[in-house]
Design a protein around this nucleic acid. Structure first.
Lengths: 358, 358
DNA sequence: CTGTTAGCGCTTTCAG
DNA sequence: CTGAAAGCGCTAACAG
């Protein structure tokens, strides 16, 4: 074995390369960085040594020295959700375009774990930490997030809240929202304009996460504007998944159908709702109209096709990265550190005018 | 400003903490690691300084010194695919359970980018690099992967091929497959047993990726076993998405329906196929039977419900992590570095006996 | 053009 | 129990 060979099991180091090429470490470093004149012959020798030893630079040592590959951290509940996956894709895309690598971490909806993940990201030296998904917006949460925002800011990083309300004017955090409440208002208004008066809200959560709260606010505002009843009884709880939406609505229907339309809080819930309605012998939209929220791909296959609210999820992810990184690079100013993306209703076949008599 | 305060914009370092607490860096380090006796009073002082300075340890410096948070890298085409997202979830889960953080990277199906991502992961010092998704299994690919496997092995890491064929006995790589060909054989056999003879294969790709090739092999073997015609004309090309499957099948139907069943290469393709059949005035399963592959969640909403092949995607991800990390930790032996998970047919409502006459 | 040197922030012997 | 000091692998002055 050549003396310049690295120990087996351990990766080759810059020193190994230097020894094998018969040059100094600095020269190897310069060949790698390619930002300094190096003689052709020397460069060739170094490159050969690199190839022979299958050398790759150690990111950690680089990062320590200041020149680390800046990463973008993206924290979400669960990769399996279609809408969050879309945001993740937007983030990945924009991060890649800017030569950043992207770290995706999941929390399984546990705020505890969210904190620990953010901490890890800070240790990691991420250039931006993007958080997405609804949360329970209480004092404890705001305080904690504000702390994180300041910590991140102090380490030269940036907190981005995506699809969550802003923390306040003095908190150094970027906020990328979509018009959650407006989308709900628009889609429910449409139902009301079609003569529906009793509209079931399906998918209220016990905790009151921001996403659901916003959609419910839009629902309520629309009802108020049309003088429709806003009974507590028309708000139906359900967990954030298809199965629970199905079960809850089936149960509800068994106790009598006192509504002519259903506003499902997500397309996934709408899928469950559609099955529940159909399985109960109700026809959509003739007997009951149905609308969803999110406009995710899988909803394409619902029959009748679902009227829903389109959310620009991918754009949300791209914007988050753009603003956060742009800030450090002078592309965007701190005045632009709040974006509100529009939503719009997509009309398909799951709604019809309310039946005249029931 | 206290002299012990770190420069603004830069994170606090261990030295800052030490100065503020009036102890040596070593002591702080020991408090952090909690693996050495430290006097109660001293520990309290240190902890307070840590809190006051909002200190977090620098991962890179730690990694450099040997005690880095070992990461698991997961490389896939696109987070938006439901099946890959499931694998990703399995990986996340198992990695988290073992205290590893998980780095998810996407390649957009570009082999070039796959290589560069793997390289980055090696620089990063990932404990395992998990690759998933079909590939074109040619000599160039095998050679390249073999190289990567050896490189990773030499750096104390491990390459895991997930849902891809193994590279060979002498290549230090872990392989976690599912019975791709067997699943296709089983589901096509079922169609044949129901009297279907002319079964359209929908979703052949021009390149011949391993996933499609395996499913096609199962299809062919089943046809052969039942003496059914294996005409080239019954193999229909289509890209890996719903829209193309729809278009291709519509076009095909316009030229005449010379088949009684369709085997769609994925559930997503099946969704497109179902729409194409329905839009062409054909009833599933009365006129044409339809089967898919993957058993992903979104397929739940197809009507009629789709008969398909279940693939244990989440388990695939968990197994990948378990084997790769277990190897280094002595839990699994190198003999177990190949796993073949089973698949099975899930019978729902999209198939029926072949019509007697057409 | 190339080599020497001084750290980046942390852990870990080895001496108190 | 605590501190001093040596490096992990790399880059960036500073000298040749």
């Amino acid at each position: 074995m050549t003396p310049a060979d690295p120990a087996p099991g351990a990766p080759a180091t810059l020193r190994d390369v230097a020894e094998r090429a018969g040059v100094s470490m600095a020269t190897v470093s310069r060949v790698l960085a390619d930002n300094y004149p190096v003689a052709q012959r020397t460069r060739q020798r170094v490159l050969r040594a690199i190839r022979e030893l299958d050398y790759v630079a150690n990111t950690h040592a680089r990062a320590l020295r200041g020149r680390g590959t800046p990463t973008v951290a993206f924290v979400l509940n669960d990769v399996r959700g279609a809408s969050f996956a879309q945001v993740a894709h937007g983030v990945e895309e924009e991060a890649a375009r800017r030569g950043r690598i992207c770290l995706i971490c999941t929390t399984q909806g546990d705020p505890e774990r969210e904190l620990s993940v953010v901490r890890t990201m800070r240790e990691q030296g991420a250039g931006a930490v993007i958080l997405i998904g609804g949360v329970v917006d209480d004092a404890a949460y705001r305080e904690q997030m504000t702390g994180i925002a300041h910590s991140l800011d102090a380490s030269g990083s940036r907190l981005v809240l995506c699809g969550r309300p802003p923390l306040g004017p003095d908190v150094p955090a970027t906020c990328v929202e979509y018009d959650n409440e407006g989308g709900a208002y628009a889609v429910v208004s449409r139902l009301l304009a079609q003569g529906h008066r009793r509209i079931l809200f399906l998918g209220a959560d016990a905790e009151g996460t921001t996403t659901v709260a916003g959609r419910m606010a839009g629902y309520r505002r629309a009802l108020a504007d049309y003088d429709a009843p806003a009974e507590e009884g028309l708000v139906q709880r359900a967990d954030f998944n298809r199965a629970d939406a199905y079960e809850r609505l089936r149960g509800r229907i068994r106790q009598g159908v006192d509504f002519t339309a259903v506003f499902a809080v997500t397309d996934i819930a709408a899928a469950g709702a559609l099955a529940a309605l159909t399985d109960s012998g109700l026809t959509v939209p003739d007997d009951v109209s149905l609308v969803g929220y999110d406009d995710v791909d899988p909803a394409t296959d619902l029959r009748p096709q679902l009227t829903t609210v389109h959310v620009p999820y991918e754009e949300l992810g791209r914007t988050a990265v753009r603003l956060a990184l742009g800030l450090r690079e002078g592309e965007s100013s701190s005045a632009e550190q709040h974006a509100l993306l529009g939503t719009h209703v997509v009309i398909r076949d799951s709604t019809a005018p309310a039946p005249v008599a029931r």
